[in-house]
Lab assay of single mutants.
Amino acid sequence: TEYKLVVVGAGGVGKSALTIQLIQNHFVDEYDPTIEDSYRKQVVIDGETCLLDILDTAGQEEYSAMRDQYMRTGEGFLCVFAINNTKSFEDIHQYREQIKRVKDSDDVPMVLVGNKCDLAARTVESRQAQDLARSYGIPYIETSAKTRQGVEDAFYTLVREIRQH
């Protein structure tokens, strides 16, 4: 089974770092803004072998026109913010609204991801993020692309959301 996953969120929150940590098991430290990259990885989730087709997208506003296209083809979405960047957390709402509009559905598989949880300088409390996820009816997972904490959990949870859909 193949799953088309799309990673969305503001610029600099760590979308590529999360994806590369999942696929290649290493942490990319330097920031190089993405336009669009796709990665494929075969994994076993709950005993089922599946192929993850992951689209890593641009957070930069100037590429926002490309969003409709990949939102149409994606089956599930990782909505990523950084726990030390309140603005990126506030941006999640717009991504969710755009996904709902493009998919013409209120019920699209999504996982809210709070990345950079290895950093002490948190400005978005776990509780705020949990409340937001609960209001959307989606899971919330904290990750660190640096330490790998929660990385597999985030992507695998999204696959489970798609399966249950």
Rank of each mutant, 00 (worst) to 15 (best):
residue 155 F to H: 08
residue 86 T to K: 00
residue 126 S to A: 12
residue 24 Q to S: 04
residue 34 T to K: 01
residue 116 K to D: 12
residue 133 A to S: 12
residue 98 Q to L: 11
residue 106 D to M: 01
residue 12 G to C: 15
residue 100 K to L: 04
residue 58 A to W: 11
residue 165 H to A: 09
residue 118 D to W: 09
residue 139 P to H: 10
residue 1 T to A: 04
residue 160 R to C: 13
residue 13 V to I: 14
residue 112 L to W: 13
residue 62 E to D: 12
residue 28 V to W: 01
residue 113 V to I: 07
residue 112 L to N: 12
residue 36 E to F: 04
residue 89 F to W: 05
residue 75 E to R: 04
residue 79 C to R: 01
residue 117 C to N: 09
residue 10 A to R: 13
residue 139 P to S: 12
residue 126 S to P: 11
residue 57 T to K: 07
residue 16 S to P: 01
residue 14 G to C: 00
residue 83 I to Y: 13
residue 83 I to N: 00
residue 117 C to V: 09
residue 9 G to P: 01
residue 151 V to F: 14
residue 94 Q to W: 14
residue 64 S to F: 04
residue 125 E to L: 12
residue 18 L to E: 04
residue 147 T to W: 14
residue 57 T to M: 14
residue 133 A to T: 07
residue 2 E to I: 00
residue 10 A to T: 08
residue 165 H to W: 14
residue 115 N to V: 15
residue 34 T to H: 00
residue 103 K to P: 03
residue 155 F to N: 04
residue 81 F to H: 02
residue 129 A to E: 12
residue 48 E to Y: 05
residue 88 S to L: 04
residue 90 E to C: 09
residue 39 Y to N: 01
residue 62 E to G: 11
residue 30 E to M: 01
residue 120 A to P: 14
residue 114 G to I: 13
residue 95 Y to M: 09
residue 80 V to N: 00
residue 5 L to D: 07
residue 21 Q to A: 11
residue 73 T to K: 04
residue 68 D to N: 02
residue 52 L to Q: 06
residue 47 G to C: 02
residue 44 V to K: 03
residue 100 K to D: 00
residue 81 F to V: 06
residue 133 A to Y: 15
residue 95 Y to L: 03
residue 55 L to Q: 05
residue 21 Q to E: 14
residue 158 L to K: 05
residue 90 E to W: 02
residue 157 T to W: 13
residue 150 G to I: 14
residue 134 R to Q: 09
residue 136 Y to S: 09
residue 35 I to T: 07
residue 87 K to R: 03
residue 129 A to C: 10
residue 38 S to H: 02
residue 70 Y to H: 04
residue 71 M to P: 11
residue 40 R to G: 04
residue 76 G to K: 03
residue 142 E to M: 13
residue 143 T to L: 15
residue 156 Y to D: 13
residue 118 D to V: 07
residue 158 L to H: 12
residue 78 L to Q: 06
residue 31 Y to A: 04
residue 147 T to I: 12
residue 22 L to R: 15
residue 16 S to H: 00
residue 122 R to W: 09
residue 116 K to M: 15
residue 80 V to M: 09
residue 66 M to W: 10
residue 96 R to S: 05
residue 14 G to N: 01
residue 154 A to Y: 04
residue 73 T to E: 06
residue 5 L to H: 01
residue 9 G to H: 03
residue 17 A to I: 11
residue 96 R to W: 11
residue 93 H to M: 10
residue 38 S to Y: 00
residue 85 N to L: 02
residue 94 Q to D: 14
residue 12 G to Q: 14
residue 122 R to H: 13
residue 123 T to Y: 04
residue 95 Y to P: 00
residue 151 V to K: 14
residue 132 L to N: 13
residue 149 Q to E: 13
residue 127 R to F: 11
residue 142 E to Q: 09
residue 40 R to H: 03
residue 144 S to Y: 14
residue 80 V to Q: 00
residue 120 A to W: 11
residue 117 C to L: 06
residue 100 K to N: 09
residue 76 G to H: 08
residue 60 Q to G: 15
residue 4 K to Q: 03
residue 95 Y to R: 01
residue 120 A to V: 09
residue 18 L to C: 06
residue 111 V to W: 12
residue 6 V to K: 03
residue 113 V to Q: 05
residue 57 T to S: 06
residue 37 D to T: 01
residue 81 F to Q: 00
residue 82 A to T: 06
residue 61 E to P: 14
residue 163 R to W: 08
residue 164 Q to M: 11
residue 84 N to T: 05
residue 158 L to G: 06
residue 65 A to D: 03
residue 159 V to Y: 13
residue 95 Y to G: 08
residue 6 V to L: 08
residue 64 S to I: 02
residue 51 L to E: 03
residue 1 T to S: 03
residue 2 E to H: 04
residue 62 E to A: 09
residue 152 E to R: 12
residue 13 V to N: 11
residue 68 D to G: 04
residue 77 F to V: 03
residue 88 S to W: 06
residue 158 L to D: 04
residue 10 A to E: 04
residue 157 T to I: 11
residue 132 L to K: 05
residue 31 Y to V: 07
residue 116 K to L: 15
residue 71 M to Q: 11
residue 40 R to F: 00
residue 118 D to G: 14
residue 114 G to T: 09
residue 59 G to S: 13
residue 13 V to L: 13
residue 47 G to Y: 01
residue 134 R to W: 10
residue 160 R to S: 12
residue 33 P to C: 07
residue 54 I to T: 12
residue 153 D to P: 08
residue 159 V to M: 15
residue 130 Q to G: 06
residue 23 I to S: 05
residue 11 G to V: 15
residue 106 D to N: 12
residue 119 L to A: 14
residue 84 N to P: 02
residue 55 L to C: 02
residue 124 V to Q: 11
residue 46 D to M: 02
residue 3 Y to W: 09
residue 114 G to F: 08
residue 133 A to W: 12
residue 54 I to G: 01
residue 141 I to D: 03
residue 155 F to R: 06
residue 152 E to P: 03
residue 54 I to V: 06
residue 110 M to P: 02
residue 163 R to F: 08
residue 124 V to P: 14
residue 107 D to Q: 10
residue 15 K to M: 00
residue 73 T to D: 05
residue 132 L to D: 12
residue 87 K to N: 04
residue 159 V to E: 11
residue 125 E to Y: 10
residue 132 L to E: 06
residue 96 R to C: 09
residue 156 Y to K: 15
residue 37 D to C: 00
residue 7 V to Q: 04
residue 30 E to H: 05
residue 140 Y to S: 09
residue 118 D to N: 14
residue 88 S to T: 04
residue 159 V to G: 10
residue 123 T to M: 08
residue 154 A to R: 04
residue 126 S to K: 07
